[in-house]
Amino acid sequence: MYVVAGLGIYLVVTDALARRRAGVGFWPTDAAFRQGPVTFVLFVPIAVVVYLASWIGWLATDGGWDRHSAELAPATGVWSWVPSAFHSLWLYHRAIYDFHVGLSSAHAYASRRGSGPFCCAPRRCTQRRRPTVRPAVFPRTGASRTSTACRTR
């Protein structure tokens, strides 16, 4: 959502600067009040459609996490026309937001604010194990010897 807002502001500011270069009088208000709503109408619905398309796997199947939460607490009043899949998606997003707002305990893999996009968080991606010892049986003689298995990551 912040990316969409930032890009929308960028588009309006770019238009304002283009109007200034073109010599338009009152270019800041002209860009804000004339081009701003047009940019919003052209930009935001496409962003909403793309965002919902990214959730199509969750919306179209029954196996998604908390997929049927709207059936337990159906919408009433003005929002009763919203399909239960989209209401469940809203409840899912609200649960994610409530969890992260209430998260206050420290943990070993915490990252500093703003370091997420740069992958600076401490991560433990692999775990090295010691090789295991398995007896190898030779088919013709029936004799066995001890061998070490390959090291796994």
Score class of each variant (00 low, 15 high):
P131D: 00
T132W: 02
P131Y: 05
Y10P: 04
A85S: 14
A136E: 04
V137G: 00
W55A: 12
Q127A: 12
D15G: 12
L7F: 02
V133W: 11
P83Q: 03
L91Y: 08
I46T: 14
A85R: 14
H107Q: 12
A136G: 02
F99C: 04
A18G: 06
L7S: 08
V12M: 07
A110I: 15
S147E: 12
H107N: 11
A73V: 14
V78Q: 01
E71M: 10
F118N: 01
P74Q: 02
R140C: 06
S111L: 12
C120H: 08
T141D: 03
H68V: 05
V41L: 09
W58E: 08
V4Y: 04
G102S: 11
S69R: 13
F33V: 09
V13A: 15
G142N: 04
W27P: 00
I9D: 03
H93R: 04
V48L: 14
A143Y: 13
V4W: 03
M1Q: 06
Q127L: 13
A16R: 11
G116W: 06
I9K: 09
R20S: 10
A121T: 09
R130S: 02
L72V: 13
G25M: 02
A32G: 09
Q127M: 08
A108F: 15
G63D: 09
H107W: 15
F138S: 02
Q127E: 00
A32P: 01
S105R: 15
G64I: 08
W55Y: 14
R153L: 15
L103F: 14
G63M: 01
R34S: 05
R153H: 14
R151V: 15
G114S: 08
T132A: 05
T61W: 14
V24E: 00
D66L: 14
